[in-house]
Design a protein around this nucleic acid. Sequence first.
RNA 1: CGGAGCGUAGCGCAGUCUGGUAGCGCACCUGCUUCGGGAGCAGGGGGUCGGAGGUUCGAAUCCUCUCGCUCCGACCA
Length: 445
Amino acid sequence: MRLTRYFLPVLKENPAEAQIVSHRYMLRAGMIKQQAAGIYSWLPLGYRVLKRIEQIVHEEQARAGHIPLLMPTLQPADLWRESGRYDDYGQEMLRIKDRQDREMLYGPTNEEMITDIFRAHVTSYKDLPLTLYHIQWKFRDEMRPRFGVMRGREFLMKDGYNFDVDKASALHAYNRHMVSYLRTYERMGLTAIPMRADSGPIGGDDTHEFLVLASTGESEVFFDSAVTDLKLGNREVDYDNRDEVAAICREFTTLYARTDETHDPAVFDQIPEARRKVARGIEVGQIFYFGTKYSEAMGAMVTTADGGKVPVEMGSHGIGVSRLLGAIIEASHDDKGIIWPEGVTPFPVGIVNLKQGDAAADAACEGLYKALAAKGLEALYDDRDERAGAKFATMDLIGLPWRITVGPRGLANGIVEVTSRRTGVSEEMTPDAAVARIAQIYADV
RNA sequence: CGGAGCGUAGCGCAGUCUGGUAGCGCACCUGCUUCGGGAGCAGGGGGUCGGAGGUUCGAAUCCUCUCGCUCCGACCA
């Protein structure tokens, strides 16, 4: 993408309403525009990151064997009357009437609807296990939206629902989600710690929240610092192997890590003092096992091998997709702007032409741009007629992890600079070597 | 929903107390000079002062109502 043809409305000054760093930078980098309290338009740069995050979620769900579909944002009220939640949900549910005076609602989550789909088409244990998910906009009419996309009223969420014939299978689905989520967050450059939590209005027995540590987090968390060293990495996981998946879950949940809802000081105090940490965290996902709560209320039954009928065992599992942008920025920025992890960056690399209009510099930049494209890497080429300082400031603000700097001075010696946004370290090399270097960095992202 | 604030140009703000030609910085447009970390000079465009009603010779400014937004708190992916 050539910057002169893009839409990137960056702001030099801090918008007054933005209190936390991720909100400030998202506004300043031209990623979002507020349209109402807690409701945002996603401008091109923000939209690109959102799509990157969605793609990672889809890939990891596929790896775990979960099936994507898409349910609507508007739902009929009657479905929610069946589960009893139409009355329970309260003011947070946005209720709407259509022209026939039918009661509708803007979905805050989808347990009822997915159960409705399931019961209409699945009647036998032979069709299980089944896990369906979608990535769709949700609406919760928060009392106080704040912090930009971190607590919006309209937000994009991945929500998945597992259907299993018995509790052991449902718990395997729970574990499978935990492992797939660990990998999902790691690919986004995040350390998200699964913490035993409280189930809240969804109900159920087992639940973990995934917390990203950040001083601006809304939850107080208590943990053994050793948990932050745990990494799933690139290990091969057989998601159908119950023991293997369960073992990974034990690895990540044995050390103490809890939110204030489940915190137990007596247990916490047994951790060696140097590793005892109290911090704040941003909740970026949650997994629940809730058994037959919805299947019983809504009549989602399957026939078992011995001819009986049982309500299906369920759980639900969510990732706050739009919130993740805020969480990633909170976890990865400096005083100049955002620092995107390679996994989610809107563009893999930026090209800065220090002297637009200089024949050699223009030609070198065009050459780099095309060579990168040929390797499947879409650079953001700053081809504006701006001074070097302005271009650097823009690149630093929008946070592309790598920058290639091209100027007449270097080109006279046949070299360009490759600079890491994270470390600030620059290396001089030929344009060909720069392309190879960037390609190698992204080879296994 | 309780408490506290704020709505003046695309953004950040002054002007409101004490009514009298609507301003500043950034951004934008034109020209010249400049050009490896948000350039300089000169010129220029842009605002029914959130909205409605009222008081007044005269309202951004005073009064009433209303809409929107932000912050603190209780709730939440």
